[in-house]
């Protein structure tokens, strides 16, 4: 069954077409890769799925519901969450506060209950705190709980951003270049982490990355974008032997 479907999706900025009638599906429980040269429109697709950009034409459905042009927070509520290429943490807050803030999704006490600190608020706050600590534990960040996010080493900032995304119990997690700036060791660790996350949290993952060993290593399906159009789609082996993909990446010989 398809978790996410993009039908004929186009995005134009003035005269520039960033994404041009792309059709694309993500299967439930899968890890899917999105690759392509710089400027191919990969991040734009993320921005369209998460509602950061408005779709010019086409339709996006998630879990059977139309999410085209919904507000980003609504889409997040429905179960899609993401990380950013240029990490966007709550920089001045602690690691713990970053995750605890995102856990807000799991509490529903009202403003009134909060201001009077009524029992329901107390109970739910306790649960949120447990949940946040639990997540930090799983993500191996618990010993840096009180660090200010901005002071974390780069690799851990990426990890924290994933932890924050997971606090929403998402059904679909979008990772925008999670391995950017990582060495092969760290990339290998990240691959394990991503596979772990999928199992533990029972979710589907869509990854943009330029590290081919990562994408080819963990993705079951890959879509290749070039100049905003879908160039190819298939299993890692199919993609690796696809002449069009080779051409786009390496140029034509002769």
């Amino acid at each position: 069954m398809n978790l996410l479907e993009m039908k004929n999706v186009t995005k134009r900025f003035g005269g520039l077409t960033a994404v041009s009638s792309v059709d694309f599906e993500i299967e439930k429980g899968s890890i899917t890769g999105l690759i392509g040269p710089n400027g191919a429109g990969k991040t734009t697709i993320f921005n369209l799925i998460t509602g950061v950009y408005k779709v010019t034409e086409g339709k996006i459905t998630f879990d059977g519901k139309d999410i085209t042009n919904k507000e980003p927070y609504m889409i997040a509520d429905m179960g899609i969450t993401r990380t950013f290429q240029n990490i966007r943490l709550f920089k001045k807050l602690s690691v713990y506060e970053n995750v605890l803030t995102a856990c807000q999704y799991n509490a529903n006490y009202s403003l009134f209950e909060a201001m009077l600190y009524l029992p329901r608020c107390r109970k739910q706050e306790k649960q949120l705190k447990e949940q946040a600590e639990n997540l930090l534990e799983i993500m191996g960040l618990i010993d840096r709980k009180d660090f200010i996010a901005n002071n974390l080493p780069y690799g851990l900032q990426r990890r924290l951003e994933i932890a924050r995304a997971l606090s929403l119990n998402p059904k679909l997690l979008l990772l925008d270049e999670p391995a950017a700036g990582m060495n092969p060791d760290e990339t290998a660790q990240l691959m394990n982490l991503i596979s772990d996350i999928r199992k533990k949290f029972d979710l589907s993952i869509l990854i943009i990355d330029h590290h081919m060993d990562l994408v080819m290593g963990i993705c079951e399906k890959i879509m290749v974008l070039n100049f905003g159009c879908k160039l190819a789609e298939g299993t890692p082996i199919e993609i690796q032997s696809n002449p069009k993909v080779i051409e786009a990446y390496l140029g034509v010989e002769g």
């Binding site: 927070y73 997040a76 950013f84 709550f90 506060e97 803030t101």
Partner: peptide
């Protein structure tokens, strides 16, 4: 906490629902 998140980083807040 949501208000503080809005102060810190609007886009990330949206993505956090």
């Amino acid at each position: 906490r949501n208000m503080i998140a809005v102060r810190e980083e609007e886009l990330a807040s949206q993505i956090a629902g």
